[in-house]
Design a protein around this nucleic acid. Structure first.
Lengths: 156, 156
DNA sequence: TAATCTGGTTTTAAGATGCAACCCAATTAT
DNA sequence: ATAATTGGGTTGCATCTTAAAACCAGATTA
């Protein structure tokens, strides 16, 4: 049977996963953030099969995460560049990286040291914050119930 | 051929995706954050096939994202609960939700209104911040080159 | 005691993936 | 000028994964 798709889910996380939630797409976006733009470079850096890479790039372009740009005057050379939508995945990628560094550290390697160009200092650990800027956890949040505004149901 | 796995990748994002990067795993974690704990509830809420749910729950337990807890005195009733590692995916899920709400809003539905229990105010949009707490984008960061500390290569 | 609930496993058909081979236009080397 | 290489694909095939439905066994409920 076909893989299930969530295009029409009423959950925005499911819809997001529909666009970048497969094994390769987020890694492609990550490498695009690294600066990779060419088909062959993605292929070599990721070790992905060419047909799969074609499919994923096309899907990411369809979804507006990447745009395909002709380079080299005579056509037939392309670059895949992040759109604003694609660059906006930065917090997702960083959150995932920090989670991975914390919980599955490479035994022999230091976690990636990512720094701010302006200050030269490492970036902060990404966190969910309340209106006052205080970091909060999943236990600190609720979804106000539209029908009875007083209730504080546990939810994400 | 089998799907490629990234257990041993030297990229922590790849290793993270290996644990929660398939179509269902993050949705299971999301629903666990909602409060879902029982097999049947996951199954009904997600509309996932039972064999796939079995497999994913087992994998999440193996990876330490969930723990399987016997409830009901005589065994054979279980709950799947988030571990600290699992709860620590909160920023990832929120970042993904906010990205989805921004770029693929449901046509007819308001985005999820997530609030802080203590203040009753909506949570902030999650962002990558530099050491001074200023939000930064992918263009503002670099990875210091260990061999020549002065260089500012563009990287994530 | 019968029916139902819970948490699975098995079977089957259809999709998705990885790999290698092939293709063709543009570029580079000889 | 011709040959070899590069870039960006497509095609076919074998294998793996998935969805759906049937089935199952131990508890619980009627």
């Amino acid at each position: 049977m076909a893989r299930k798709r969530f295009d029409d889910s009423n959950c925005s996380v499911a819809r997001a996963l529909n666009q970048v939630g497969d094994w390769w797409s987020l890694l492609i976006v990550l490498h695009a953030m690294y600066g990779t733009r060419r088909f062959v470079d993605f292929q070599q850096e990721l070790g992905i099969a060419k047909n799969i890479l074609c499919d994923r790039l096309a899907r990411l372009v369809d979804n507006g995460v990447l745009k395909k740009v002709e380079v080299g005057e005579h056509g037939s050379r392309f670059e895949y560049r992040l759109t604003e939508k694609g660059r906006d995945l930065f917090p997702v990628v960083i959150a995932l990286r920090q989670w991975g560094d914390k919980w599955n550290p490479a035994p022999d390697e230091a976690p990636l040291d990512l720094r701010d160009r302006a200050t030269g200092q490492p970036v902060q650990t990404i966190q969910v914050r309340n209106a006052d800027g205080e970091p909060i956890t999943v236990r600190d949040v609720f979804v106000p119930d539209a029908s009875s505004p007083g209730s504080k149901k546990d939810s994400v």
